[in-house]
Every structure is written in structure tokens, then in C-alpha cells.
Design a binder for these strands. Structure first.
Length: 802
DNA sequence: AGCACGCCGACT
DNA sequence: GTCGGCGTGCTC
């Protein structure tokens, strides 16, 4: 008796394995691994979504007759292929998360089922209350909106008496749109042409269209755009049997822009030295990992495009991952211009429906190139020939909630599966990747020169501890002068200030009170445009006080400068400058990103002032000055990667200057002018930074010399989080190897967020056989404790310690 | 997650 | 004595 192995949508430790279900005879022919099904689960036979991960001919553990049958199919074809099924298994072990969570993150959001429980009275209805509640309704949803807890208890009682029935509904949210298309049935076009009257221009036009593309279904909506072709013309053809009407899936096209086809550009010798080995690996089906270390402006993108072409030439597909695609519309345009409609785009800026459409195009084999952010690494391409991870050091490649995967790891796994190379590209590779290249595990390719012999911009450091008072603490005289002369030359300026809002905290000068978020251990930031004090962690907002909430003194002051205040001050210093501000607050609305950038690109502003979102990938030829208002914001964070992040950010933003024929200039303002991260960013010497930082990591015993794992415990009561973390500490100490070091528990740098108290434990290890089984035990414990409001998060390779 | 079973305190 | 509180275990 055949049965199906099903992973059910019940994310718990105790259900984290496949359950066997009987396959009803009518489903036996259709059912395949990778399809979603609805299955009865638990005592009430409540209906849940599940993924078929395998089929068995007989089941030794269970007699066929004690298996429950699959209720129904949710898909007609598999939504997870064999590769991704295997990947989900590896991923769940690697990240200590549930298999169902892994499967669901590989798919667009809309494919997660929605559940609804309803209740219906069983006729004849005798109970008066029941009759009154239901009146003429057949059934009602069993939720808070319809029934109070007391009423639910009453319903339970009536159900036990058989007067009420409970129904479980599983709703597939994914709705596909269809449209009408016609398929050509003509074989002899000249004979048909003879049959059409000379003055029937519409019919002639349609015939020409069919002749051009006799094999593909043509969408009616597109066809009727052709002059002369109308619905009536199409109907005439259908009546004659010349075309057949079919319905095809309709896809929303999120980047429906006119295309300017471009051709491969001639390569510099550097680029050629990179392209050759990558293309060879693609041809030879080698799963080599290349680290492409190229300074900003060295032409990495052209290397990507020409290697993608190699994969396409072999009838294979290419996957290109970028940090957050909304930030680099220029990159999307370049790829689309080169490869046209075979490109699919997946990123967080798309609506759920748009993501689903792009995903289906990929799954149907209609896309050959996928460009996308983190989750696009799961794009269901059947035969991958190349995977590119641009800006491979970017922290957004790490998912911060379950499953806590790193895109780089998944990319490498998939490359091994497909026997294809991975290209990790960056101007400032992560220390981990660069170290692997050093050891020969990755193959290092370097692009040390900018294309067209452009000079790297000259970088000047301004020591803000010695800055003149006249200009305040925000902008130095050097920067103001440089901005002014840039504007006189009719060139543009990019300014980075990695802090949003107006002022970062409010302080009472009489009693020393600092206004904090009531839900988090963090001071509230003042925002002038919304006239509120905001918490950047939980979103709490309150009015701006005009007296101290504690002592009612009116001597309150606001300290710290964010982008809002910087904009105001700059405007005062340079009244004629047209300033555009770009941060989370000005880009919240859909498309705002693009609008600000194109305004700046069209020279409608002189200065683009923003947070780190302006550091990446922007390419404006008229920008000749880049200023960093405060290089220190990230430097003193309690994170061993603080220097690396600062170096990356400064290098990245400096690269925005002088990208065309005009020379660029960069001014970095800092209170730590001697710090090596800032010094070496000034020299734009990544290799020197790498060596220096490696020494420091070696001494401190951090990545890449040691692996790290992190356990975070949180609870509503601080004592609970602390106690539990000490219990886990004990478990770790009793089980882990002697050489493994366990740090903590310590309260998180921000000890409370959204009313939860956080404690963390850091594990540093080199080789520890016991680590995986021990963390699995921690995972099991977390399952039990979750009922008491405790949450335990395991991160097998954290990138962020805040 | 949701449901049943089972063991302790407040009530008709 | 029973009703119902929620702590614990199980779901093919």
C-alpha cells in the first residue's frame, strides 16, 4: 500500500519529521514529492498544510489501515523540486530550525496556507442559544471576533453532544491570474493568405503575427495592441479553425520599462583574467568558488554579465544575488538591457502577488536569469550554470530570523548540487571569504584598477576633535568649502550621515533625565517632520515634550544629529544648495527610492544627504564630492566586526565619487582620525586592512580563526531570561569540548526590546563534535520553554551581535 | 499550534 | 463531592 511522507505545517520540535499518510486511489496517479497537500492532523482531525517529501511503497512502521488519508492536493505540479527538498533538509540541520520553516521560506509568502476554523450547528437545531447565534447563517468562523471565550466553551460542550460540528479550512492564498491567448493552427500560410480578402487589413495583420511566431501562444491583450487586430478579427480566425483559444497564466511585470538593448563591452586585461577562469569552470561544470576582489568602479558588473552569457550559451541558467535590489535599480536595468525578458526579478520591494508571478515564471522555466535579494537564492531554476553573489560581504545576506541562514552558504550548497561555479564579488570582501581565498579554498581573482584608468578619488580625513566652533559639530570648514566649490562647478555632492531623525536623545539639564522608550532600553529619537519622539526598535511614538517629564523643568535639550537636523543646518550654511534627503523616513512609500534617485540623477538637486542606503551601487557621473559627516557611528558598537563594517562603509561610499571622467574627492570627518579602519579606508588599501584586522581577530580569537555560534534567550521578566540562560550555559559547559570557549551569558547591548529582556551566550569553537548535538538539545529545550513565554534563538553563524 | 488528559484548588 | 484552572504529552 503506497503512502506519502509529509512534513506538516506544525513548527515544533516534536513534529519535526515526516508523517506517513495513505494516498487515496484517485490521487495516486497525480501525487508527487514536492507538492503541497492538506492532511488531517491531531485528535480533532484539524486540517493542515503539508509538503510531500517522499513516497513509499510500503510502510513498515505503520499498517496502511491506521494511516489517515491525504485530504486533497494544493498543487497540480510540485512547487518544491528534488534539489530544494534536499536543500531544506540540509538547511534545517545547519540552522537548527524546523523543516517546515525551511520549506516555507523557499517559497513566496502567498504559498503559506491560511487557516480558518468554522463551526456549524447540526440540524435540527434545538438549542435556543444556538438558533439565535446562527440565525440564518450556515456556519461562523471560530475566532475572537465572533465568539467570546465563554461562548467557545459552550460550543465545545454542544459539540460533545453532537449538536455542533467543527470544520477546518485550509486556504491557498496564491491566486493566479489568467488571460486569453490564441495558438496558431495554420500550417500553410500562403493558402490562408489567399483566402483573406484584400481589404481585410486586420486579418492580414493577424496572419503576419501568427506567421512570425507560429509556435508560441499569443496573448489576446497584446495582439489587440497591433493596429487593425481586434477581438472580432481573432474571433473570425477562431471560427475558421485557424487559431485555438487557450488560457495562459498572466504575470505582472514589476519592471515594465522600455529596454535599451546593449552589447557585451570589450574587456580590460584585468576583466579578461577574471572572465576566463570563471567561464572555464562553467564549461567544465566545476563548482569552484571564486572571490572577485575588485575596487569600486573596476567593472565587476561586466564580468558578471559576460559570465552569465556563458551559462546561457550552454542552455543553463544564472542566479545573481544582490544585497537589496531596490537600492540598485541601475543594476537591474543593466541586466535587463543585456538579457531582456528572460530576466526575472525577485526582491522585497515587490508586492506578494508580483513575487508570486515572478516565482512562477521561474518555476515554469520561463526565466533564464534571476536577479534578486537574499531569498532569491532559493529560486527554483532547474539547471543552474552560475551563481553570483555581488557585495558578498553585505550583512543583509544573513537572515536574522528562523531559518537563520547565510545566502553565501546556500549559494555554495546549490553550486555543488549543480556542479557550477559561484562568484563572490566585492570591493571589500568579508574577512571570512578573503581568508578562505588565502588558504586556497576559494580562487582569488582581482580587479585592482578602475576601468578607463580613472583615478581612485583622493580621500582627506578631517579631525573633528580639532574642528572650529564656528561651524558647529556637524560640518567642518574643509567640507563646507569643498561643497561650495563643487556646487560652483555645477557638480554634485553625496553626504553620508548614518543616523536618521533630528536629534538622537532628549536630556533634562536640571535633573539629567533622558527620555526613553517605555518598551525598550533605548532613548527616543526626535523626528521633526512627524513632530514625534520615535523608538527606532519598536516604532513607539509620542509627542515632543516641552518640559521634562520627570521634574517639569523647561531646561531640556536635544543632543545628537541625525539626517533631519543635518539637512536643516546645511541649508543654513549653504542657502542656495538644493538638498535631497534619503533615509528610511523619506523612502517609506513604494517607489520613493527610485524617485529620489532619479531626481538626483536629473540634476534637480545638488546634494544627496542620506544614511547608509546611499553608500551602495549608486552611479552618478556628476558626483565629484563625497562627504562622510561622522565616520565613527559604527565604530564603537560592541561587535567584533565594527571595524570591518566601518571600513566597508567608508570604502563603499568613497567609491561614489568620480565615477566618470571628472576626478573625485572624498572628505571623511571623524573623532578617531588615528583608527586603523579609517586610516586604511583613506588609503583605500583593502589588502592592508585585511592583514591588520586578521591579526586583531587572531589575538582576540574571533572569526575567521574561530567559528562563532550565538544563543539568545528572551523573556518578559528579566530574571526568567537570566535564569534560563544560565541553565543553558551549564548544559553547554557539560557537553562541549574543552577547547570550545563559552562567553556569557550577558544582557544584550540593548537589554530590552519590545518589552522583552535579552540575554546572549557566545560560543567560540574550532572543531567540536559535540556542538551540533548539544545545540539540538538546546533547540529541544527551547520548545518546552516557549510555553512559559521564553524564547531561545540559536544562530549557528551570527553576523550581528546587537 | 491545538486538543485531550490529568491533577489540584474554589464552589454549588 | 464537582467544575474548571492550566501543566504535559501527542499528533501518521
Amino acid at each position: 500500500m503506497p503512502s506519502a511522507a509529509v512534513i506538516v505545517d506544525v513548527p515544533t520540535m516534536q513534529t519535526n519529521f515526516p508523517y506517513s499518510y495513505a494516498i487515496p486511489p484517485e490521487l495516486q496517479a497525480q501525487l508527487q514529492p514536492g507538492m503541497r497537500v492538506v492532511v488531517p492532523f491531531g485528535s480533532g482531525n484539524r486540517q493542515v498544510e503539508g509538503f510531500v517529501v517522499g513516497l513509499q511503497d510500503d510502510d513498515s512502521k505503520h499498517q496502511a489501515d491506521d494511516l489517515k488519508p491525504i485530504t486533497r492536493l494544493m498543487d497540480l505540479t510540485p512547487v518544491v523540486n528534488q534539489e530544494l527538498l534536499a536543500l531544506s533538509d540540509w538547511l534545517s540541520q545547519r540552522t537548527y530550525s524546523f523543516r517546515i520553516s525551511c520549506l516555507l521560506t523557499m517559497l513566496p509568502n502567498v504559498m503559506k496556507a491560511k487557516y480558518q476554523t468554522t463551526v456549524a450547528p447540526v440540524p435540527p437545531v434545538q438549542n435556543q442559544w444556538l438558533a439565535k447565534v446562527f440565525a440564518d447563517q450556515q456556519e461562523l468562523p471560530l475566532d475572537q471576533a465572533h465568539f467570546t471565550n465563554r461562548e467557545v466553551a459552550r460550543l465545545t460542550e454542544l459539540r460533545n453532544q453532537g449538536q455542533v460540528q467543527v470544520h477546518y479550512h485550509v486556504k491557498n492564498q496564491a491566486k493566479r491570474k489568467t488571460e486569453v491567448a490564441v495558438v496558431n493552427q495554420i500550417t500553410d500560410f500562403s493558402r490562408c493568405a489567399a483566402e483573406i480578402r484584400k481589404n481585410a487589413t486586420g486579418q492580414q495583420a493577424l496572419l503576419r503575427q501568427l506567421e512570425q511566431q507560429p509556435k508560441t501562444p499569443l496573448r489576446q491583450r497584446e495582439l489587440t495592441k497591433v493596429p487593425g487586430i481586434s477581438a472580432a478579427v481573432i474571433k473570425t480566425f477562431a471560427d475558421r479553425g485557424w487559431v485555438r483559444k487557450v488560457t495562459v497564466e498572466q504575470y505582472r511585470n514589476p519592471y515594465d520599462q522600455p529596454r535599451h538593448p546593449d552589447q557585451p563591452q570589450p574587456l580590460t586585461p584585468d576583466q579578461q583574467r577574471a572572465v576566463t577562469p570563471i567561464n572555464k569552470a562553467i564549461r567544465d561544470q566545476q563548482s569552484t568558488v571564486f572571490l572577485l576582489e575588485g575596487v569600486t568602479g573596476s567593472g565587476k558588473t561586466e564580468v558578471y554579465l559576460q559570465t552569465i552569457q556563458q551559462a546561457l550559451d550552454q542552455d543553463e541558467q544564472a542566479l545573481m544575488l544582490v544585497p537589496e535590489i531596490a537600492l540598485t535599480p541601475q543594476m537591474v536595468t543593466r541586466v535587463k538591457n543585456r538579457f531582456g525578458d528572460q530576466v526575472a526579478i525577485l526582491h522585497s520591494g515587490l508586492s506578494n502577488g508580483e513575487k508570486y508571478d515572478e516565482w512562477r515564471r521561474i518555476n515554469a522555466g520561463a526565466a533564464q536569469v534571476v536577479v534578486g535579494a537574499r531569498s532569491a537564492v532559493f529560486a527554483p531554476l532547474p539547471k543552474v550554470g552560475l551563481i553570483i553573489l555581488d557585495e558578498e560581504h553585505d550583512p543583509s545576506y544573513k537572515q536574522s530570523d528562523n531559518p537563520r541562514y547565510h545566502t553565501r552558504d546556500v549559494a555554495i550548497w546549490r553550486a555543488q548540487y549543480h556542479h557550477c561555479p559561484v562568484v563572490l564579488g566585492s570591493a571589500t570582501p568579508s574577512l571570512e571569504s578573503r581568508a578562505r581565498a588565502e588558504k586556497g579554498r576559494y580562487q582569488l581573482l582581482r580587479l585592482p584598477h578602475r576601468i578607463n584608468q580613472q583615478q581612485l578619488p583622493a580621500i582627506q580625513i578631517v579631525d573633528m576633535t580639532a574642528s572650529s566652533e564656528r561651524y558647529g559639530d556637524l560640518v567642518s570648514q574643509e567640507l563646507v568649502t569643498a561643497i561650495q566649490s563643487t556646487l560652483t562647478r555645477k557638480e554634485q555632492v553625496v553626504l553620508l550621515l548614518n543616523r536618521r531623525g533630528f536629534s538622537s536623545f532628549m536630556l533634562c539639564r536640571d535633573c539629567g533625565y533622558v527620555l526613553k522608550c517605555p518598551h525598550c532600553d533605548i532613548s527616543l529619537t526626535m523626528h521633526l517632520d512627524s513632530q514625534t519622539m520615535k523608538c527606532h526598535y519598536c516604532g513607539f511614538e509620542t509627542a515632543i515634550p516641552n518640559e521634562c517629564p520627570q521634574c517639569h523643568s523647561r531646561h531640556i535639550r536635544y543632543f545628537g544629529t541625525g539626517t533631519e537636523k543635518a539637512e536643516q543646518q546645511l541649508q543654513r550654511l549653504i542657502p542656495k544648495a538644493r538638498i535631497l534627503r534619503m533615509d528610511v523616513d523619506t523612502t517609506r512609500k513604494k517607489g520613493a527610492h527610485q524617485r529620489i534617485l532619479s531626481q538626483f540623477g536629473d540634476q534637480q538637486a545638488d546634494i544627496l544627504l542620506g544614511t547608509q542606503m546611499i553608500a551602495k551601487g549608486l552611479d552618478f557621473p556628476n558626483v565629484t564630492l563625497v562627504g562622510v559627516l561622522n565616520a565613527d557611528t559604527g565604530l564603537d558598537l560592541p561587535d567584533f566586526r565594527a571595524s570591518e563594517r566601518t571600513f566597508d562603509l567608508l570604502t563603499q561610499v568613497a567609491g561614489r565619487a568620480g565615477r566618470a571622467e571628472k576626478a573625485g574627492q572624498v572628505i571623511i570627518q571623524t573623532f578617531n582620525p588615528q583608527h586603523y579602519a579609517i586610516q586604511l579606508a583613506q588609503q583605500q588599501d583593502y589588502e592592508a586592512f585585511f592583514r591588520k584586522e586578521m591579526q586583531i581577530r587572531h589575538l582576540a580569537g574571533y572569526s575567521p580563526y574561530y567559528f562563532t555560534a550565538q544563543i539568545t534567550v528572551s523573556a518578559l521578566v528579566e530574571k526568567d531570561a537570566a535564569q534560563e540562560s544560565y541553565r543553558i550555559l551549564q548544559l553547554l559547559q557539560q557537553n562541549l569540548a574543552q577547547t570550545t570557549e563559552v562567553l556569557g551569558p550577558t544582557p544584550n547591548p540593548i537589554a530590552r526590546i519590545k518589552n522583552r529582556y535579552y540575554y546572549q551566550i557566545i560560543i567560540k569553537y574550532k572543531h567540536d563534535e559535540q556542538l551540533a548535538p548539544t545545540l539540538t538539545r538546546v533547540q529541544a529545550i527551547s520548545q518546552k520553554e516557549v510555553r512559559k513565554g521564553l524564547r531561545i534563538a540559536i544562530d549557528s553563524d551570527p553576523v550581528n551581535f546587537m
